[in-house]
Simulated scan of single mutants.
Amino acid sequence: MSVTEGVLPPITTPMDDNGNIDYDALRAHIDRLEDAGVHGIIPCGSTGERATLTREEHEQVIETTVETASTTVLAGTGASSTEEAIQLSQHAADVGADGVLIIYPYYSWPSNEHVVRHYEAIADAIDIPLVIYNIPKRTARNLEPDATVRLAEHPDIAGIKESAGDINQIYELLRRTHDMEFDVLSGYDSQALSTLTLGGTGITSVAANVFPETVCELFEAAREGELERGRQLHEEILEIETAMNLQTIPVAVKAALDIVGVHGPHVRPPLYEADQDTREKLEDFLDDREPA
């Protein structure tokens, strides 16, 4: 599949008791997800705690993911600095990533006019597809549809992970880019079914870290037009998404993965491990479910 099709989980970055990255656990997590049927892997996204990884760690996580994965690797390489994003993206391309996922620059707070130039500069500097990542709640800026459509004209910008939380904006993007080589992926599990049935091509699913088979079933149901089955799975995924958001992502996600025996719950400050109340709620939630 392409870098914009199917279920692509933004994966957690496993860490040990001392806060060091556990690369063996990372490899095992990737293998587990691929065995469950995901179509690609996204390392170094928000769920992967990109903001607190060192440059060396960032590059090593991407290298390890490329070495381990047999599916598409869409590497998170966004940064506040255009030059840093170019360097990270070039490294990802050099080590074999299939594409890069670039968040709207945080903290710098560029206008839409300026961010178009930012994305174009990165796309011009690399030879693999670029996917835009729009998530206003983390960047304080929304990439408006007019700017997205302009970027869709670039031959090396393949699509957008749309996490504005606005289904009307998703529909507008799908409508206006319908005849262009540009895809729209759902950035939220809760909007996955709607996005796919409206014409979207993929799900960048946090829930798939814990329940990959369920999310893959939803994708297949939507693709096959089995809307009643899709609706039932959507209800399940809404419950999963609520559980994964009991604390800031990926705190509850890692706690859930620890409970089901995938990898430890450790996160890196300024995030801290899930409190006892959250763990108890997750244990109750997971008690009647069997993640892949």
Rank of each mutant, 00 (worst) to 15 (best):
residue 3 V to Y: 01
residue 6 G to S: 07
residue 7 V to H: 03
residue 7 V to Q: 04
residue 9 P to S: 12
residue 13 T to K: 15
residue 15 M to Q: 11
residue 15 M to L: 09
residue 17 D to E: 11
residue 18 N to F: 11
residue 20 N to H: 14
residue 23 Y to R: 07
residue 24 D to K: 12
residue 28 A to T: 11
residue 32 R to S: 08
residue 33 L to W: 03
residue 40 G to C: 13
residue 40 G to P: 12
residue 44 C to D: 07
residue 45 G to A: 01
residue 45 G to Y: 08
residue 46 S to L: 13
residue 47 T to K: 02
residue 50 R to M: 15
residue 51 A to S: 12
residue 52 T to C: 12
residue 56 E to S: 13
residue 57 E to D: 03
residue 59 E to W: 07
residue 60 Q to I: 05
residue 61 V to A: 02
residue 67 E to N: 10
residue 75 A to K: 00
residue 84 E to D: 07
residue 86 I to G: 03
residue 87 Q to S: 10
residue 87 Q to E: 14
residue 88 L to C: 05
residue 89 S to E: 01
residue 90 Q to L: 10
residue 90 Q to D: 06
residue 91 H to W: 02
residue 94 D to E: 15
residue 97 A to S: 04
residue 98 D to R: 05
residue 102 I to K: 06
residue 103 I to D: 08
residue 108 S to N: 15
residue 110 P to H: 06
residue 115 V to F: 01
residue 117 R to L: 15
residue 121 A to S: 12
residue 123 A to C: 00
residue 124 D to H: 01
residue 128 I to S: 01
residue 129 P to H: 02
residue 136 P to T: 03
residue 136 P to Y: 05
residue 139 T to Y: 05
residue 141 R to W: 11
residue 144 E to W: 11
residue 150 R to Y: 08
residue 151 L to D: 03
residue 151 L to S: 00
residue 152 A to G: 10
residue 157 I to T: 07
residue 157 I to D: 08
residue 163 S to Y: 09
residue 164 A to N: 15
residue 165 G to E: 07
residue 166 D to T: 09
residue 172 E to S: 08
residue 176 R to E: 13
residue 178 H to C: 10
residue 178 H to I: 14
residue 181 E to R: 10
residue 183 D to K: 09
residue 183 D to A: 09
residue 184 V to P: 04
residue 190 S to H: 14
residue 195 T to H: 03
residue 196 L to H: 08
residue 206 V to M: 04
residue 206 V to R: 05
residue 206 V to A: 06
residue 211 F to N: 01
residue 216 C to L: 04
residue 216 C to A: 14
residue 216 C to V: 12
residue 216 C to Q: 06
residue 221 A to T: 07
residue 224 E to L: 14
residue 224 E to G: 06
residue 224 E to D: 12
residue 225 G to S: 00
residue 229 R to I: 11
residue 232 Q to R: 15
residue 235 E to S: 12
residue 242 T to S: 12
residue 243 A to T: 05
residue 244 M to N: 06
residue 244 M to H: 05
residue 246 L to M: 13
residue 247 Q to W: 02
residue 247 Q to D: 15
residue 251 V to N: 10
residue 252 A to W: 02
residue 255 A to I: 11
residue 257 L to D: 00
residue 263 H to D: 07
residue 266 H to I: 11
residue 268 R to Q: 14
residue 272 Y to E: 12
residue 273 E to W: 05
residue 275 D to G: 13
residue 275 D to P: 03
residue 276 Q to D: 10
residue 279 R to A: 08
residue 282 L to N: 02
residue 284 D to V: 14
residue 284 D to W: 15
residue 286 L to N: 07
residue 288 D to Q: 12
